[in-house]
Write a protein that binds this DNA or RNA. Structure first.
Lengths: 195, 195, 195, 195
DNA sequence: CATGAATGAGAGTTCATTCAT
DNA sequence: GATGAATGAACTCTCATTCAT
């Protein structure tokens, strides 16, 4: 029944995700998930021992989804600057998308459950993105599109800026324009002049 | 009366701050604050109606403290780059300081209590810092220390990066070295070469 | 499930009734009911959201009980005066019965929860009794037992008098004799002379 | 300082009355009275040991007011029927007057604090009114206005009816018309035909 | 006498978790 | 495996009452 269990878990996860998106992590109760999933109270415990476990699984499945969603859409002849711009604009959309976002819940979760070093999905995703950006920048430097002595730090800087924008969107609020200006500044810092 | 009440509020605030630092915002209960403050259950309600009110006051008093703490220490002959570096290193210390930090609680609070536009202390502090940095950068440009076409965006970029580092410290963890490298990259972006 | 729930509700209702009888409406706490019912604190909330809901259900079940309890006992050959007397003496018993009476709690409930027009059980019961009395008096008039030009008002007058006796029993106290004298006066007013 | 104390008590009583009228007996808290009276929390306890004592005093002062308020207004040449009608119409007004009425609070008080036999103000007032009515009816009988064999019971019947109307006004609601019809029925029962 | 800050018992309510069926 | 009724600890908040000033 490992098969059946997986299907059930998927079902729970999907519904739980909706709840987490809507209410964040802390405000979500087992009851909420039980009601959304149309599963029995006891049934939930057959698959998950506590709310944290559920959330972690939601996060995992989300992380898996995010990975390949980007790659496919890149045109053959795209320049490094094109790709970077695409990436940043994708991030912009996600930052502005308040609804249907796990951002808040994720932060909340990590506030409560301090980094278990390994198995820190957030960190893995972050590092993956950094590595990708670094390669991209390095390639842009090679093709003379970018000017950058430290692609590794540039990549990290971009990621921290995005992270800063993301959290700011949740707390102090942020406009699309403000993000655009930051995107512009990032490209500027890499020596890209015209837009 | 008003005087005494203020003193009592200060006392409660101090203790409440400790609790918020330790447990974050959501996990903190009135009971926690009551116990720490060595005040009676009902007594707390004489001064504050709910945890949100207490937290906001803690935040306010913290914001007030932060404001003037920096100014005094700047040497007369400090260059713009010196000052910027000092500011960034101050921030570094604060980012790394897990204990005695309200960061987490603050984010949690703003997750729950969405932007009251005005009176958003976080935003006000952010904008104040941006304005200060912008002036600093502009002055650095004038003195030929910095190269920067868009001081406003540069200032914001620095602030978003710091915000990204701050939240990362709470979620995926971060080292002092990593922050140093970002500081270095910021200066680099402003055209400062030797360190 | 629905079946079991109903049985449990009945059980709670029975115990809650005891508490309401003993302590009235306002002084009754959820805790009281919980303790009497030998149910858990949270358990009660599975069936009822607040004390008002419980009380209303107690009232409903009581109202249902009262309805048919009277009819069956009337002898075939009873005259209108006989029946009226029987009714009044039944009421007398109830008025004097301090213990096992929901009267006080009922009044208290309706003080707090002002007339929801429909669904006002008290009113419904009152009007039902008025209608019954009116028919009875009219029939008595036809059979020359009673003299009454306004059976509708006579019926209401009887009911208001009973209500007055009932509340007086709870506040200023009342004796069986006093009620008897009022019963006598009622019959007298309807032109019934010998007793 | 017995004099000063009395003045203070009067002040408290007046304000407390307002609160009791507005919120009833049980829902009224010491806090409410303190706030309305603009007296200190501790100060209240200097004069009254508990809410019951305050209410009883309010009731007493009210009872004193009611006593003489009626007598003065009777015209010299009024017949017994005139006076009775005046009395009943006065009562009607009071019954309909939901606001500015201590009725509910009074019932609530007597529910909680069972009749101390002596010193039952409610009873005393009731009996006073009964005695007055009895005299009135007897006088009416002598002047051939009324037909009544048992003025004592007639008087009591009127009072119970009024009591019934009063409580009904608070629970199931009642219209002015309905009261009028009862007044009409009372007069009819006393053999008064034209109105 | 008078004050009002402080107390603490106790009310209502919620929720993660268990366990008999 | 699956259910959902039941549990009880924990939380928020209120209020009569006290007592140092």
């Amino acid at each position: 029944m490992g098969e059946k269990a997986k299907i059930k878990k998927q079902l729970i996860l999907g519904k739980a995700r909706e709840v987490f998106v809507e209410k964040g992590y802390k405000r979500t109760t087992m009851k909420d998930i039980v009601e959304k999933s149309e599963i029995s109270r006891g049934g939930l415990y057959l698959y998950y021992e506590n709310p944290a476990q559920i959330f972690l699984d939601v996060l995992k499945s989300d992380s898996a989804v995010g990975e390949d969603s980007f790659e496919g859409e890149i045109p053959e002849d795209a320049t490094a600057a094109d790709i970077l711009l695409m990436f940043l604009q994708e991030e912009k959309k996600e930052i502005l998308r308040k609804k249907d976002s796990l951002v808040q819940a994720t932060y909340e979760y990590y506030f409560e459950n301090k980094p278990p070093k390994r198995d820190n999905i957030l960190k893995r995703d972050f590092e993956t993105a950094v590595a990708m950006l670094e390669k991209l920048i390095a390639s842009g430097v090679r093709s003379k599109e970018f000017v950058c002595k430290t692609p590794a730090e540039a990549a990290r800087s971009i990621m921290y800026t995005l992270e800063g924008l993301r959290i700011s969107a949740q707390t102090i609020g942020i406009t699309g324009d403000a993000i655009d200006r930051q995107i512009y500044y990032i490209l500027l810092s890499l020596g890209v002049s015209e837009k």
